[in-house]
Design a protein around this nucleic acid. Structure first.
Length: 833
RNA sequence: GCGGACGUGGCGGAACUGGUAUACGCGCCAGGUUUAGGUCCUGGUGGGCCUCACGGCCCAUGGAGGUUCGAAUCCUCUCGUCCGCACCA
């Protein structure tokens, strides 16, 4: 008997798959295209190539590969591609430190990743592989930019932007976490710069609504909804008479307008200083504004911060009652949201309440929880944010606030003092980066014609080589004078190229489209080919991309559909998020020194063990803790299956088939066949029911254990041996999606066939059903006995059987049975008194 | 503060629509093969109590109530852990 040597068998099968290009799948119009088969696009999020793949990659691709294998054997033509998200900061920072060109380090990392993925035996169609840094890819990234530009969905604007002083680049809103740079943790600063944006806010409503029609985890949808942050309300104009300025404010509570007792501007509000000019507060306002602007976003966002602010020395008019209310500037009002000005209703808003208390301002309750019973009825505790009856609200007194809401809006619109309005938290997507290692923006600037798009035929705008990658507040590309200096496509005069590059999230917002037609040299994709694959049926990846990547990719898909370039409405029909693998309960990190390198385990135990273990450790969508003992356990199991196969081949012959047995002659054979069909059924259901690979693998373990226990009795009997062969081959077949090499090896050794060419097995119902079952007998809901009963026994018979058990008799002794519950096929419960 | 997820043996975790709690694996214990050990094979293993034994009884799914013939599962309250978002008007 040969020992289990994963290295040998894994290399053998990898060579077969490589040589025969087993996992390549043709597009429509290509040879061997099978249009009778339904399609399935199985995609894992593309890796960012840096160093070597880590344990998270092993988990994501093990899950994805299991899905891909399963779908293929269910008769689907499966697209399962791979590529690399190759532009970006880490490679550039590495270049700044070492001088090594980002292209060199990136290509090195890609080679490592490609080698590892092959060593893991992941079933990828390698003919579609690409990196987003290749001109043959980013040419089309630029083309998409131009398409968006042509629709006004890409635009340039001078804007206050978030700037990371350490990385010396602008950041997207989404990349600022608690006022700090997402990457390096440096507090961000505000800067005014000309920047490129994508108009994602045009799609806010559709991005929100269409969440209802995709099969994504609820928590991911919730995060996206919160991020879009739609709120309905009204914009109401508060007029200042001296100087004469109209201030629109956004409120979700126009029903509390009568309770507005003051008015507040954000320090960044362009009119703040002008308003205070000429009043006794002029200097105080200027000082306050300067102080607020200097304070970092982090300081301003700090929790439990006192509500500071200063008067502007002016009043504005509350349009509903003509009241003059005092105006303030205070930094608890944010310029980024709404209009940068608010009406303050201290009785019904916690923040306004705090400010009013701190500055001794009037608080007027205009909504009561219930109708006041009398003069001295208990007052509601303020601030009161709930609904109720309006008071002190002129002609609305006594009305329900929800009902009056609409009338107040109608009145505002009729009087032209405001209008219904919807605001979003979502901002347009800032895509300019003052960085080298990214996709150049295909725009040139001409004295005469301004910003001019590079003609499609001139794409790609190649990323030039430069000497110095270090950012200096403007893009390193600015130093490539030969490249920057060009001619205007419109007038032919001198022009200069845009030197910013695109955010790398742009690259990864459409890569799943390119896979469909990756070798197309004349177009980003052929629409018919794209239509034959899109949308992605199963997307798999980490939850850390729940907002950014997934929102951007959805936006691109919708925008490109509107440009009539594709037909999909959503890119990812179904999403599965992978839980993190921890070590000793903590996130793996170099500083903790608890990093598990998948390569070590693949070398020691083989890829099958490593892959099976990450699937067996627990439900794939949950976090799981890595233990070496657990890996050994899985390895032991694979060795057990290997030895079973060796022994069965030795004693019953090699590769002579593993036909199902339908008329077993012995109880031993029947028992093993029952277990085999049970396992087929269980594994199939576990995969179908939300990828429960941990219990699926456990079922194969049970099958192998059963074969071990019964095998001694089965040798010598032809039917018994056939049952044993079937069980062993079935174990290999069921394990194949998780441990493809061993699965293929075992199946071929017994059945003489290639398991991936075999359809996914179906359980034989004759072996799933049984003539008898274990009847559970309860007395007062407590388990008292188990008896074998015939499946077609009538209720009366079951009751009789239940009562005949000694243990039950003892329980019934001297008591009266007041109720009998019979669940056919399951249990009998006798209620006694 | 708001929103979401989750609490089950010594450990990772099972339990489909309320119906045998603890599958499978780790660990531990015992036996067997080989024997120097490991590997490998078989069996046992939630806690407590009674019994020479067969067997039996009681208690256990974070805690407290409730619904039900029957609750890990449903409801109410509560404690704890983790993850989002957070001065969003």
């Amino acid at each position: 008997m040969e020992p289990y040597e994963p290295d040998t068998i894994e290399r053998h099968w990898q060579e077969v798959w490589e040589r025969e290009r087993t996992w390549e799948v043709p597009n429509p119009g290509q040879p061997d295209f099978d249009d009778s088969a339904p399609k399935s696009y199985v995609l894992e999020m593309l890796p960012y190539p840096s160093g070597e793949p880590h344990i998270g990659h092993l988990k994501v691709y093990s899950v994805g590969d299991a899905v891909a294998h399963y779908m293929r054997r269910r008769g689907y033509r499966v697209l399962h591609p791979m590529g690399y998200d190759a532009f970006g900061l880490p490679a550039e920072n590495h270049a700044i430190k070492t001088g090594e060109h980002p292209r060199a380090s990136t290509d090195g990392a890609i080679a490592s990743f490609a080698r590892q993925f092959r060593r893991w035996g992941i079933s990828i169609d390698w003919s579609r592989e690409f990196g987003t840094h290749e001109p043959s890819y980013y040419r089309w990234t630029q083309w998409i930019f131009l398409k968006l530009y042509s629709r006004g969905l890409a635009y340039r604007k001078d804007a206050a932007v978030m700037w990371c002083p350490k990385d010396a680049t602008v950041l997207a809103n989404e990349q600022v976490i608690d006022g700090r740079c997402e990457r390096c943790g440096t507090p961000v600063e505000a800067r005014q710069l000309e920047q490129w944006f994508f108009r994602i806010t045009d799609y806010a409503d559709r991005l929100l609504e269409d969440l209802d029609c995709i099969d994504w985890p609820e928590h991911v949808k919730t995060m996206q909804r919160n991020w879009i942050g739609r709120s309905e309300g009204a914009e109401v104009v508060f007029r200042c008479e001296e100087p004469a300025i109209d201030f629109p404010v956004f409120t979700t509570r126009p029903d509390t307008l009568f309770g507005a007792t003051f008015f507040v501007l954000a320090p960044e509000h362009p009119e703040a200083e002008r308003l205070a000019a000429g009043t006794e507060y002029e200097d105080a306002v200027r000082d306050y504004v300067n102080e607020a602007l200097r304070a970092s976003a982090e300081e301003r966002g700090a929790e439990e911060r006192e509500k500071t602010g200063v008067p502007l020395g002016r009043t504005v008019v509350n349009p509903v009652n003509g009241e003059q209310i005092p105006a303030f500037v205070a930094d608890y009002v944010l310029m980024e949201y709404g209009t940068g000005a608010i009406m303050a209703v201290p009785a019904h808003d916690a923040r306004d309440y705090e400010f009013a208390k701190a500055h001794d301002l009037p608080i007027r309750q205009v909504i009561r929880q219930s109708e006041p019973a009398g003069e001295d009825s208990a007052r509601d505790e303020l601030p009161y944010m709930g609904d109720g009856v309006m008071v002190d609200s002129g002609r609305f007194d006594g009305r329900d606030n929800r009902e009056a809401y609409e009338e107040i809006c109608d009145w505002l619109e009729a009087e032209r003092r405001g209008r219904r309005s919807i605001h979003y938290r979502l901002r347009d997507w800032l895509i300019s980066r003052q960085r080298y290692w990214g996709c150049p923006i295909p725009i040139v600037y001409c004295e005469q014609d301004g910003a001019v798009p590079v003609p499609e035929d001139d794409l790609p705008v190649l990323l030039p080589d430069v000497e110095d990658f270090a950012p200096k507040g403007k893009s390193p590309l600015a130093t490539a004078e030969d490249w920057v200096s060009t001619t205007c496509p419109t007038c032919g005069g001198p022009a200069r190229r845009e030197t910013d590059t695109m955010d790398t999230f742009v690259d990864s917002s459409w890569y799943f489209l390119r896979y469909c037609d990756a070798r197309n040299e004349t177009a980003a994709w052929d629409r018919a080919v794209l239509g034959s694959w899109m949308p992605v049926d199963q997307y798999i990846g980490g939850v850390e991309h729940a907002i950014l990547h997934l929102m951007y990719a959805r936006f691109f898909t919708k925008a490109l559909a509107d440009l009539d370039l594709l037909d999909a409405r959503e890119p990812f029909e179904s999403l599965f998020t992978i839980g993190m693998i921890t070590r000793d309960g903590a996130k793996m990190s170099k500083s903790r020194g608890n990093v598990v390198d998948p390569a070590d385990y693949v070398e020691r135990f083989g890829a099958d063990t490593a892959r099976c273990y990450v699937l067996f450790i627990g439900p794939s969508d949950q976090d799981a803790d890595w233990t070496d003992k657990g890996v050994e356990g899985v390895h032991r199991f694979l060795g057990r299956l290997w030895r079973l196969k060796e022994e069965v081949v030795e004693r019953t012959g090699a590769a002579s088939g593993a036909a199902p047995v339908d008329d077993p002659s012995s109880d031993e054979a029947r028992g093993l066949l029952r277990k085999s069909h049970w396992a087929i059924d269980k594994v199939t259901r576990d995969i179908e029911r939300g990828f429960q690979f941990n219990t699926a693998i456990a079922a194969v373990m049970e099958l192998v254990n059963e074969a071990y226990r019964r095998k001694a009795e089965l040798y010598g009997d032809p039917v018994g041996e056939a049952a044993l062969r079937f069980a062993t081959a079935t174990a290999g077949s069921l394990l194949f999606p998780f441990a493809p090499h061993l699965g293929a090896e075992v199946y071929e050794a017994i059945a003489g066939e290639r398991v991936w060419e075999e359809p996914w097995p179906r359980p034989d119902p004759a072996f799933l059903e049984s003539d008898t079952f274990t009847l559970v007998v309860q007395v007062n809901g407590r388990l008292r006995a188990r008896v074998e009963a015939s499946v077609d026994a009538a209720e009366g018979e079951l009751l009789e059987l239940a009562r005949s058990s000694d243990a039950v008799k003892r329980q019934l002794d001297g008591k009266e049975v007041v109720k009998e519950i019979v669940v056919p096929g399951k249990l009998v419960n006798l209620v006694v008194r």
